[in-house]
Every structure is written in structure tokens, then in C-alpha cells.
């Protein structure tokens, strides 16, 4: 400090005095001598170190060390994260920038214990239901049905088709249009109809589907349509159940 005042021109204060003393700084580097200092003789003092004894290998740079997860408590429902009062463990940057800065969460007290029943999901059945709805609304589900064997569309056909594209649900979640869809019928090929998906017996959403006829015999199959969901299509003339 004394030294700084002498070196700096008049009117300037050293930066260490401007910045708060408790500012977090990560300046620790763990080093290891490349050439160890020689052993001392019994009864003798420390030997003088040579230039090579001041060469170091870097063992760890604490600035780039992976930080532990941060525990935060949500102050409100946050989609695909959790409900009010839920304790979340997240990576420190994400927890700070996405939850604490916008005011969605605060740091968890050490003694805090939250039970499952105290968590408030704000009219949602779970924090992830809305995400599932958003994704279901985005897709057009191709329902592959047989071209040769007669069939009537059942909920399990939709469940299997959803499973094929990575959505998992029960038969009880699926409500088909009140008018049964029968086939094989090439008039309904690639025409839009909607089924209702109910998540956790609470949230309801409509899922756009299209029937695609498929034959076991390759020569009998319809030509493959590349990315059918990007093409416009007419609605199937059946009354759909509005949510």
C-alpha cells in the first residue's frame, strides 16, 4: 500500500482500495516443483535453492475446476423446473442466471426442509406437463395402419404410434373422436384428425394425427412421402372433440 502511493501519480488511488475487499476472486493455482529441493543434512539449515527449483508444474487451476451444484428454492412455479417451494439442485451458472436473477428462486437455507405436499404447481399437475403439451402440439403423428386387413382405430393404435416417436402414455390418456375411424380406406389417407390427450387426468391437449396405409407386401405399398408433416393436408370430415 505504502509503495503504491509513491508509485501512482497524485489523485489516483490503487485499484485494491476501490474494489470491495470481499470480492470473490479465484486466483489459486496449485503447483508442484518440477525439481524438488535437495534434502537437508541433519543439524544443518535449509540449503539455498537453485534456479531450477523455481520451475513448477501446474497441478490444478481452480478457475476452471468444475463447481458443485447449487441448491435453490423456487419462489414460484417454473415450467419444466418445479413448483413453488421446491428445492432444486442445478449448475451454479444456470441456477444463478435462469432462476435467481429473474427472481424465480432464492438460495436455500441450510435448515430448510420442504415436503412434497407443500409444493405448489399453480394449476398444473406437474412441472413437466406443460412441456409435454407444447411438444405434442408441435408434432403431426403418423399412424401406420394396414392397407389389407380391415380395422377400426382404437386408443392403443395411437399409443403405439406415439411410442414409436418417443412419447410414452397409457391408453387412458387417449380420447378418440366420437365417430369411429375405419379402414382400410384410401380416402382418409394422409388427412388430418385430432385426438385428445389427457395428462395426469388434468391437462388436455389436441394431437394432430394422419393415417398412413402400409402393406406387408413391398410391391403393394404406397409411395413413401418424405417429411409428410411439412405438407399441407385436408381435414378428415369427422367432428372433432374440442377441448
Amino acid at each position: 500500500m505504502f509503495c503504491n502511493k509513491f508509485l501512482l501519480p497524485r489523485g489516483l488511488t490503487p485499484i485494491s482500495q476501490i474494489l470491495p475487499a470481499n470480492l470473490q476472486k479465484r486466483t489459486t493455482f496449485i503447483l508442484k516443483r518440477k525439481w524438488q529441493e535437495p534434502l537437508r543434512k541433519k543439524g544443518y539449515g535449509r540449503r539455498d535453492l537453485r534456479a531450477k527449483n523455481f520451475v513448477y508444474d501446474l497441478v490444478e487451476d481452480t478457475l476452471v475446476k468444475k463447481q458443485k451444484n447449487l441448491s435453490v428454492t423456487l419462489t414460484q412455479y417454473v415450467e419444466s423446473v418445479g413448483g413453488q417451494g421446491e428445492v432444486i439442485s442445478a449448475k451454479p451458472n444456470a441456477a444463478y442466471n435462469k432462476l435467481i436473477l429473474p427472481g424465480y428462486a432464492k438460495y436455500t437455507d441450510a435448515q430448510q426442509t420442504t415436503e412434497k405436499k407443500d409444493i405448489d404447481y399453480a394449476e398444473h399437475s406437474s412441472p413437466f406437463a406443460q412441456r409435454t403439451i407444447n411438444m405434442l402440439n408441435r408434432i403431426t403423428l403418423g399412424v401406420v395402419m394396414n392397407k389389407d386387413v380391415p380395422w377400426v382405430l382404437e386408443p392403443w393404435h395411437i399409443r403405439v404410434s406415439l411410442r414409436k416417436v418417443g412419447f410414452y402414455c397409457d391408453d387412458s390418456c387417449i380420447t378418440l373422436p366420437s365417430t369411429p375411424i375405419k379402414g382400410p380406406d384410401l380416402d382418409i389417407e394422409n388427412k388430418d384428425f385430432y385426438v385428445t390427450i389427457t395428462i395426469n387426468n388434468k391437462e388436455k391437449t389436441e394431437l394432430k394425427c394422419r393415417i398412413h396405409h402400409w402393406s406387408t407386401d413391398p410391391s403393394n405399398r404406397l409411395p413413401y412421402v418424405f417429411e409428410h408433416w411439412k405438407q399441407e393436408s385436408e381435414p378428415l370430415n369427422i367432428p372433432s372433440d374440442q377441448v
Binding site: 413437466f128 397409457d170 395428462i199 395426469n200
Partner: peptide, 15 residues
């Protein structure tokens, strides 16, 4: 591990 009865597989462990 999924808790909902309808979920998107990619966010969860394989069934």
C-alpha cells in the same frame, strides 16, 4: 425418472 402418465421419452431414462 418420469413421474407423469404421459411424457416425452428424450428427457428421461430409458424405460
Amino acid at each position: 425418472i418420469p413421474t407423469d402418465n404421459c411424457y416425452v421419452g428424450r428427457y428421461y431414462r430409458w424405460k
